[in-house]
Design a protein around this nucleic acid. Structure first.
Lengths: 251, 251
DNA sequence: GAGCAGAAAATTGCATTCATTTTTTGAGAG
DNA sequence: CTCTCAAAAAATGAATGCAATTTTCTGCTC
C-alpha cells in the first residue's frame, strides 16, 4: 500500500541532503507503512509546513496521508521522542519551539558528535576513504576560490558526512542524523557571502581538519571539530529564524 | 541523589546513571498514561524480563499492564526508535540482540558524550558543583582504599552524573540517558575485585579527571574521559553476557 | 519415524468506535 | 459592548473490531 500523494505544492529546499540513510539503518522501518509514514511526517514537519508552536491537526494529516489516526498517532509518539514535536496531555501535539538556548545546546551536541566521529575516524578510516575526503576538500577549496557558495556547501556537507561514515559506528550515525534533523528545521542564514571573514575562517579550519585527519591525530581532530562547530554556531548566532522553505545550512 | 537500593553487590562497571530524570525533562511524557507506560515497558525490558531475541508478546504485556493494544503498540514504536527493540514487519517486536561490535560502538558513543559533557562542564560548572564533585572524588578514594566496591561504584556513578549535569545541556542529558539505558541491559562483569590493576588504573584516571576539571581544561578533560571509557570498555571486553531474566541490574 | 501440504489458531496492522477532555459557541447579565 | 458561564462541537486517548499475514497444529505420504 502506497501513501496518498501529498497534494500541496511543497516547496523543496533542494539543498538538504535527502536523508534516506535513516531508513536503511533500521531494518525495523525499512519498508513498513509505519516507517514510510514516519519519514514522510518528519519531512513534512521539518520542511516547515506546520507553524512552530501550532497544534498538529491529526484529522487533517490523516486525510492528507490517506491513513487513519492509529498509525499517525504512533508516528507522532516517535517524533515526540525524537524531540521534534511536543505532546501535551489531552491537548495534542505541537511543533516544538526551538528556543535560542536549546539551539545553542543542539549545536554543542553536534559538535560533540562530530568530535567523536573525528576521533573514531582517525582510528578506522581507510586510505581510500581518506583520499576521497581529501578530494572533496580540494574541490571545496576550488568552490571557495570561485565563490561558489552552493558547491561549497555541498562539499562541506559531504566531508562531514564522510567523517561520520568513516567512524563506522552505527549508533553514532543514527544519533548524528537525529540531531542534524532537528537542526535542519532552523534556517540560520549564516550567509557566508555577506560574512567573508567567517568563510575564510571556516576554510582554514577545514585545512586543519584535513591535516589532523591525515596524521590520524584523533585528540587533535576532536578539538578542531568541536571548535569548528562552535565557530559555526557563533557565526549563526542571532540570525536564526524559523523555517521558510529555502536556503541551506552553512558551515 | 538517591539511587534505588542496589540489591546486588555484583559487578557493575559503574557507568550507568540513575535515570530518573528522563521524565522530568520531557513535559510531554510527564504524567500521561503513554509516558508512564513507556517508562514501565522500558524498565521491564531493560531489566531482562524478556529473553533477548525473543518475540515481544503484545497480548501478554497488555494484560500485564492492564491496557489495550493501542497504547502498548505506541510504546513499542518508541522503544524501537530508541534501539531497544526491533520491529519486523508482520512479525512483531523482538528484543534487540546486542552484538559484541554494537556493544563496543555504544561504549564509544558513551565515551564521546562524556567527553562532550566534560568539555562543557569546564565552561559552565559552578564552584559549588565542582566542590561537590571533589567531595565525591575523595569519598570514592576512601572507598577505594577500603576496598569498598559498592561504595566506589556509587561514587563513581555520582561523579559522572554530576559532570553531565554540570554540562547543563538538556539534549546531551537526554541522549546520555538513552545510551546509558541501552547499555544497562548488558551485564559486563568488570569485577574490579578480581581486576586490581584496572581498579588502580581507574582511580588514577579519576585523579586526572578531577585535575583537568579543576583547571577547567576542557580539551584535556575531554580526552581523558574518552580514554577512561575506552579503558573501561577494554576491561569489560569479552566478559559481557546477556541479561538473564532475573536479578535487578545494578542501577 | 521424518517430511510435507493444508487448515486452524493466533498475531499483526490498521480502521473504527467510544468515553473523556478541551475548545468553541452563544445567550444572558452587567 | 464586554464579560461570564453553560451547552454544543470538536479533538484527544484508549478500546474494540476486522482483514491480512504468520505461526502452529494436524493429518497424510513416504
Amino acid at each position: 500500500m502506497v501513501l496518498g500523494p501529498v497534494t500541496e505544492p511543497e516547496a523543496d529546499a533542494g539543498l538538504e541532503p535527502a536523508d534516506g540513510a535513516r531508513l536503511s539503518a533500521m531494518p525495523s522501518l525499512a519498508k513498513s507503512l509505519h516507517g514510510e509514514l514516519l519519514a514522510r511526517l518528519r519531512d513534512y514537519i521539518v520542511e516547515g509546513n506546520l507553524a512552530v508552536g501550532a497544534r498538529v491537526p491529526e484529522r487533517m494529516l490523516c486525510e492528507r496521508f490517506g491513513i487513519s489516526r492509529t498509525p499517525l498517532r504512533e508516528a507522532l509518539k516517535v517524533l515526540a521522542s525524537e524531540g521534534l514535536i511536543e505532546l501535551l496531555p489531552n491537548r495534542g501535539a505541537r511543533v516544538r519551539q526551538l528556543g535560542a538556548e536549546e539551539l545553542v545546546d543542539l549545536f554543542d551536541v553536534m559538535g560533540g558528535l562530530e568530535a567523536l566521529a573525528g576521533r573514531l575516524a582517525c582510528e578506522k578510516i581507510t586510505p581510500a576513504a581518506y583520499d576521497e575526503i581529501e578530494r572533496l576538500h580540494h574541490e571545496m577549496y576550488g568552490c571557495y576560490m570561485r565563490r561558489d557558495l552552493h558547491g561549497y556547501f555541498a562539499c562541506n556537507q559531504a566531508i562531514h558526512d564522510r567523517i561520520v561514515q568513516a567512524a563506522d559506528n552505527e549508533p553514532l550515525r543514527a544519533s548524528y542524523a537525529n540531531f542534524a534533523g532537528r537542526l535542519r528545521r532552523v534556517r540560520y542564514s549564516a550567509n557566508l557571502d555577506e560574512n567573508r571573514d567567517r568563510w575564510g575562517e571556516a576554510m582554514r579550519e577545514h585545512e586543519e581538519i584535513l591535516d589532523a585527519l591525515r596524521r590520524r591525530a584523533g585528540n587533535e581532530l576532536s578539538d578542531i571539530l568541536f571548535g569548528h562547530l562552535r565557530n559555526k554556531r557563533r557565526a549563526a548566532a542571532g540570525r536564526e529564524t524559523t523555517c521558510p522553505p529555502d536556503a541551506g545550512v552553512a558551515s
